[in-house]
């Protein structure tokens, strides 16, 4: 779409939306939010970019093909379930680590990795579909 207003506003909108989507992703750990809804927001950011700048510019901006992002996400989610094997727990048992050196950082868990995986799957899959539809149309 060749609109000067949209193209001027897009860089700000995309940056803000991606940032907010990551905030929602991490907030989802204990509060409403999470990988799925965050991923939808992230995908909508790239969709805005695709509308304003075109599909080939979006593909360039993403560097890796969208479907590969989804693949990495699925792999990350699988690996997060796998980590519990090192602690003698069943598959998909969440592992929590409470570091002492930094009181602000309360804990790190494998659950976050799972959520990031979901985020990447959603972003990759939806951006991939949008790109495919826009290209052929």
């Amino acid at each position: 779409m060749n609109s000067l207003i949209l193209r001027t506003a897009t860089p700000f909108l995309v940056g803000l939306t991606v940032l907010f989507s990551i905030y929602v992703l991490l907030r989802g750990h204990n509060e409403p939010g999470g990988g799925f809804i965050g991923g939808l927001m992230g995908a909508s950011a790239f969709a805005t970019y695709a509308i304003a700048e075109g599909v080939s510019a979006t593909r360039r901006a993403l560097v890796v093909p969208p479907i590969s992002i989804a693949g990495f996400g699925l792999f990350a989610a699988g690996v997060s379930g796998l980590m519990s094997i090192a602690f003698g727990d069943a598959f998909l048992t969440g592992q929590w680590w409470f570091p002492d050196f930094n009181p602000d950082l309360k804990y790190i868990s494998t659950v976050v990795l799972f959520d990031i995986g979901v985020y990447l799957v959603v972003v990759g899959a939806i951006v991939g579909i949008i790109c495919a539809l826009e290209e052929d149309g």
Partner: peptide
Amino acid sequence: MSDITQWLVVWPVLIPVLAAALAVAAWGN
């Protein structure tokens, strides 16, 4: 409660998921 032998049930399901994810990640190659 869980020991390593119980993972034997998980592998036949988990291995192809991870492999499928890697194969998708290697899209185009």
